[in-house]
Computed example of a mutant assay.
Amino acid sequence: MAAPNSAERKACWEARDFFWKCLDDNKDKSSTCHNFQEEFEAKCPAQWVKYFSKRRDFLKYKEKMQTEGFTPAEGPRGQAS
């Protein structure tokens, strides 16, 4: 597969942005944003879809850590090392 040209990249990024906005507006309910997701997947190479999905998850996780902070999980108690 050839690399997307400038117009194809722009169409992909716009489709991604519309899909992500829909998810943000609907509290990540992907069923509500099905049409946007289909368009995003149709306009972007599969590798890009995978990358952008992981990127969104990372950005959401990072945002959560910045707003809520990190609470370490409690390990087993009373065990000698």
Rank of each mutant, 00 (worst) to 15 (best):
W20N: 12
K62P: 03
F36I: 00
K60Q: 12
L23A: 01
S81Y: 15
A42T: 12
D57Q: 07
D17N: 15
L59H: 08
K62T: 07
A42C: 00
L59R: 10
M65T: 14
D57Y: 07
K62A: 13
F18Q: 13
A2V: 07
P4D: 12
S53F: 00
F18E: 14
M65V: 12
A46S: 15
E74P: 03
N35Y: 05
E38T: 10
S31V: 12
E39I: 01
A15C: 06
C22G: 11
K50M: 04
R56Y: 07
Q37H: 14
R16C: 00
E8A: 05
K50T: 12
A7L: 13
S6L: 09
N26A: 02
H34R: 11
R77D: 10
W13Q: 12
K64A: 06
Q37L: 00
K21D: 15
C22S: 07
N5F: 06
M65H: 09
A11G: 04
Y51S: 00
E63R: 07
T67A: 07
S53I: 00
D57L: 02
D57G: 05
E38K: 14
A2G: 07
T32K: 08
R56K: 05
E14I: 08
R77C: 03
D17E: 14
S53K: 03
R16T: 10
V49G: 08
V49T: 10
F70M: 09
G69H: 12
F19V: 03
Q47S: 11
R77H: 07
C22E: 11
R16A: 07
W48F: 15
C22H: 10
T32D: 13
R77S: 08
W48A: 05
F36P: 05
S6M: 12
Q79M: 03
R77I: 06
N26S: 13
A7V: 10
D25G: 01
R55C: 06
A7E: 15
R16I: 02
N26H: 15
S30P: 09
A11L: 13
P45W: 08
S30L: 07
K21I: 03
D24E: 14
A73M: 06
R9M: 11
G69N: 11
W20I: 01
R9P: 01
K64M: 04
N26M: 03
M1Y: 08
F52N: 06
S6W: 07
A80N: 05
M1N: 08
A42R: 15
W48R: 08
S53P: 00
N35A: 02
R16N: 09
F18P: 04
C12M: 04
A7I: 10
C12I: 00
W48S: 05
C12N: 02
Y51K: 06
T71K: 14
S31C: 04
A73N: 05
F70L: 10
P4I: 02
C12Q: 03
S31F: 11
P45V: 06
H34N: 10
N26L: 04
R56N: 04
K27V: 15
A3R: 09
A80C: 07
D24P: 01
W13F: 12
E74L: 06
R77G: 04
N26E: 14
Q66N: 09
E41S: 12
Q47N: 12
E8F: 00
Y61S: 14
E39D: 14
E39A: 00
K27D: 15
